[in-house]
Amino acid sequence: MEEKKTVLSVKNLSVSFTQYERWIKRTTLLAVKDVSLTVREGELVAVVGSSGSGKSLLAHGVLGILPYNAAWSGEISYYGEKLTEKRMGQLRGKEIVLVPQSVSYLDPLMKAGAQIRNGKRDQGSMGESLKTLKRYGLDETVEKLYPFELSGGMTRRILISTAVMEKPKLVIADEPTPGLHLEAAKRVLSHFREMADEGAGVLLITHDLELALEVADRIVVFYAGTSVEEASASDFRDERLLRHPYSKALYMAMPDHGFCAAPGAQPYIKDRPSGCPYAPRCERREAKCLEKVDYVSLAGGMVRCVKAEEG
C-alpha cells in the first residue's frame, strides 16, 4: 500500500495566555504544552481528553483563530509546508475547515441556508448546498429556518454541511456530539468517517473515548493540556497494548471494562505539576517522574511516561 500523505503535522505545540492578576501582575498560563500529532489523508485521528484539557485550543491554534491574548510556539505544517498565521488565514474556511460544537456558532439572525453557503448566492452554490442537505437527510425547507428553530441533530448536520460545502482537505471537528443521544451521536460521527474515507484528513476532538473508538484510526490522549499517548484505535482492545497509565485508567473506566474510574481528578492547568502531569494520581510514580518527561515513540505509537518501556 502506498504511503498516505501527511495532511497535518503538529510538533511541540504550546499555547500560552497572558493574563493580568488584579490589573498589575502579569502572568502567563501555559494552556497547551508540547503537543505533537499528525493526521494523514483518509485518516480520522481523535484527540480524547476531558473538558478543560486544552483540546479546543489545539483546533483554534491550527486554524490561527486563537484569542488575541494567546501566543503559540512550535511547528504546524500542512502538506509539509510550514503554516504561518498568514497562510492559515488563506487556508481556513477553504482547505481547512472547522466543525464547531453547538448552535451558538451560528449567527442567530441569519437563515441556515445563507450560513451553509457562507453568503454565496450563485446557482452553483445553491445546488451544492441543496445536495449537501439531502446527503444528510435534510430538505430545502431547512434553508429558511433560523438557528433557534433547529433541533440539536439538525444543527449538527448543518454545521457539518458548512464544512462539506468547501470540499476540505482537513476537517477539524470540535466536540461535535454533546447533547445528542447515542444513535444521533453515532450517526454524526459516521459522517466524519465518510469524509475521511473520501480522502480528507479528519481531526476529531472529543471527550468521549468510546464513541471515538468506533470511528477513529488513531487516538491521541490528552491530559492537562498535553498529549500523553498516541495509539492506534485497536490498541484500546487490550489494556496491555496501551502505553500510558492514564490511558490504561481510561480503558478501565469504560463500561465494558468495569467502569472503574481512577481516583483523583485532572489538575487545573494552572496547577499542573512541572514533571509528569499525571504524577499526582499515578501509582507507579517515582523520583524521575517529577523531572521533564519527553514524548517518545514506542511500539508504533507515542507516549510520555518514563516507565512506559518497562510495560
Partner: peptide, 13 residues
Amino acid sequence: ESDYVLFARARGE
C-alpha cells in the same frame, strides 16, 4: 467575542 464570530473567522471571513 461570540461563538458565531469565532466560527465566521474559522470560515475565513
